[in-house]
């Protein structure tokens, strides 16, 4: 079990960096940008679990990737006209 941790960590961290780069890429549309920042949080919560922090993993999954992404989409739906400005 323990020797699987290192490859999993490398994989998770690589996908987190890719998702992070995508979330600041100004040519992508805003929904994709928001979804990738939510993806960064979701992968981070799995990484917290590997780092033996289940409390933090639960908080990040419920709050960081759930509520924050929803708040973004809520505001995006309200200011739709400014999304491309």
């Amino acid at each position: 079990m323990s020797n699987l941790f290192i490859p999993m960590t490398v994989l998770l961290c690589a996908s987190m960096i890719v998702a992070g780069l995508m979330s600041i890429w100004s040519k992508r549309s805003l929904p994709i940008v928001m979804l990738s920042s939510g993806l960064v949080s979701l992968l981070a919560s799995v990484q917290y679990l590997l780092l033996a922090a289940p409390d933090v993993a639960m908080t990040e999954a419920a709050i960081g990737s759930g509520l924050t992404t929803f708040l973004f989409f809520f505001v995006l739906s309200r200011v739709r006209g400014g999304a491309n400005g």
Partner: peptide
């Protein structure tokens, strides 16, 4: 774009926590 700046801030936030 202000919304994109806020998204970038949350990414940095996740990094600090990690």
């Amino acid at each position: 774009n202000i919304l994109r700046m806020i998204v970038a801030f949350t990414v940095a936030d996740t990094g600090v926590n990690m």
